[in-house]
Design a protein around this nucleic acid. Structure first.
Length: 483
RNA sequence: GCGCCAGUAGCUCAGGGGUAGAGCACUCGGCUUUUAACCGAUUGGUCGCGCGUUCAAUUCGCGCCUGGCGCACCA
């Protein structure tokens, strides 16, 4: 529980007048013996089903087909003659022919408001203007809404909408109601995530959940969130990666494992960073980082095709082409190409610095940047033929790091040495150094087969595939300071 | 963390040292079997918060809060 006094808001100061009007309508509705918050409603069709079924119905043509729909009222015209009703599939117009309506119903209609949920029964017709409609005979209130929905005008068109970006993030439910592209983005997000699972499951990868609460947060360089377990009387960390536990599972005999889930990093917030974000990590026994490149490329191409039906997509005005074979270039070669210097013998920090300054932002098209300095990769196997480097790649596109992968370090003695180095750094004040996870090293001593590992930042992938400018646009409830 | 910009009615915005403005929404009335309908009237605000300057601050100054963008850090 928060130590702050809970502030129970009984007044919606700013909209109290509009809310008051709706409360009065609510009272009238109750006095008519109508339950404004009923338990259940059965419909026969969703909006899109009707739109499809009757797409050949001519203007002014009427049917005797009786249908029942339900949804939220977004708009009303001409004194409740026309109602735009939305369900999660789309819009269907209700037509209330007042001369033929039951008198009780005509009196009931003005008690409705935009935002209310209703169910409606009637026959299908297309109006002379060509709008598929339901000629209503019965209306059931399904939920009385007390607060007005935001509405804006663009050009000459009035419609529900919000421009204020802060409201859209803080009150995502409003954004979802009034911004159609928001709903589309989150539908696509769901498709991408299930597409990932389907792809891996079909290749016999098994998904296993590993702990979020950890005694030491290892597997990456990042500052963790700290929390406290009361019964154990100890602090725990939220995971910053799933790496070390997934590799334990490979030690245990699972040859293809993955975990798709939330990880937490106690770092800055930006259009590309949210403190909690979704990653997928996968590990495959007997594979190396070259296999991981093949897998990454095929996986992302497959998902892109599923979502877009093509491999060239537009991201914020740039065309990203997934079709051509993705470039696979060593970090040092990229530095030679862009900075015109050979840093083969330079210290690790220099290489990383020059790469980040001169190369990173230019990698718009999908590019595997491979062969990293050893010092920044304590979990990766030494390069099989180049001294001082490791077998590691990062996938870049649009100038962003999207994935990270190694031929996993399997030598327990080497791993112990490298994590001890990290532990020293940590002691001397580097908050982001890897902790020494003794049990992980013990697991390696029992034996980890040659293993390829891969991690992908799912939110960034979704940003690219949904043409979203900010990570907040692909996370339903992004981290925000309370007002 | 630093810099720039923003916060005024339910929504979108204008304004600017002297009682706070518009469009739409809302409410009421009229007209209409009609498709942002239309016409008319009435509502509606602690101008993000605090302190200062001033006879007077929503406006000017300083501080703070929240957000956006850029940079830094990171994925």
């Amino acid at each position: 529980m928060s130590t702050k006094d809970p502030q129970i808001q009984t007044e919606h100061e700013s909209s109290s007048r509009l809310r008051e009007q709706r409360l009065q309508k609510l009272e009238k509705i109750k006095s008519l013996g109508i339950d404004p918050y009923p338990y259940k409603f059965s419909r026969t069709h969703k909006a899109i089903e009707l739109q499809n079924k009757y797409k050949d119905l001519q203007n002014s043509q009427e049917t005797n087909d009786k249908v029942i729909v339900s949804g939220r009222i977004h708009n009303e015209r001409n004194d409740w003659i026309f109602i735009d009703l939305y369900d999660d599939s789309g819009k269907i117009q209700l037509y209330c022919d007042k001369e033929k309506l039951d008198k009780k119903l005509t009196e009931f209609l003005p008690l409705l408001d935009k935002g209310d949920f209703i169910g409606a029964t009637g026959t299908v017709r297309r109006t002379p203007r060509g709008e598929l409609s339901i000629k209503v005979s019965e209306v059931t209130l399904l939920c009385k809404s007390l607060l007005p929905l935001p509405e804006i005008i663009e050009g000459k068109k009035r419609h529900l909408g919000i421009h204020d970006i802060e409201t859209r993030y803080r009150q995502r439910y409003l954004d979802l109601i009034v911004t159609s592209t928001t709903k589309e983005t989150f539908k696509k997000r769901a498709q991408i995530i299930s597409g990932l699972r389907n792809y891996l499951n079909a290749k016999d990868y098994i998904e296993i959940d590993t702990p979020v609460l950890q005694v030491e947060a290892g597997g990456a360089e990042a500052r963790p969130f700290v929390t406290h377990h009361n019964a154990l009387g100890m602090d725990l960390y939220l995971r910053i990666a799933t790496e070390l536990h997934l590799k334990r599972l490979v030690v245990g005999g699972f040859e293809k494992v993955y975990e798709l889930g939330r990880i937490f990093r106690n770092e800055g917030i930006s259009t590309k960073h949210n403190p909690e974000f979704t990653s997928i990590e996968l590990y495959e026994a007997y594979a190396d980082y070259n296999d991981m490149m093949n897998l990454t490329e095929d996986l992302i191409k497959t998902i892109c095709l599923q979502i877009h039906g093509k491999l060239q997509i537009e991201y914020q005005g740039k065309i990203i082409d997934f079709e051509k074979p993705w470039a696979r270039i060593s970090m040092l070669d990229l530095i030679k190409e862009h900075a015109k210097v050979d840093l083969s013998d330079a210290p690790c920090e220099k290489i990383i610095e020059v790469f980040e300054k001169t190369v990173e932002s230019k990698l718009i098209q999908p590019t595997f940047v491979k062969d990293f300095p050893l010092e920044v990769s304590p979990l990766a196997k030494k390069h099989r033929s180049i001294n001082g480097l490791v077998e590691r790649f990062e996938l870049y596109m649009n100038g962003w790091e999207l994935a990270n992968s190694f031929s996993e370090l399997t030598d327990p003695l080497d791993q112990r040495k490298r994590l001890e180095e990290q532990a020293k750094k940590k002691v001397s004040g580097d908050h982001e150094a890897h902790p020494l996870d003794i049990d992980f090293i013990t697991a390696l001593e029992y034996g980890l087969p040659p293993t390829g590992g891969l991690g992908i930042g799912i939110d960034r992938l979704i940003m690219i595939l949904t043409n979203s400018a900010s990570i907040r646009d692909v996370i339903a409830f992004p981290t925000m300071k309370p007002v």
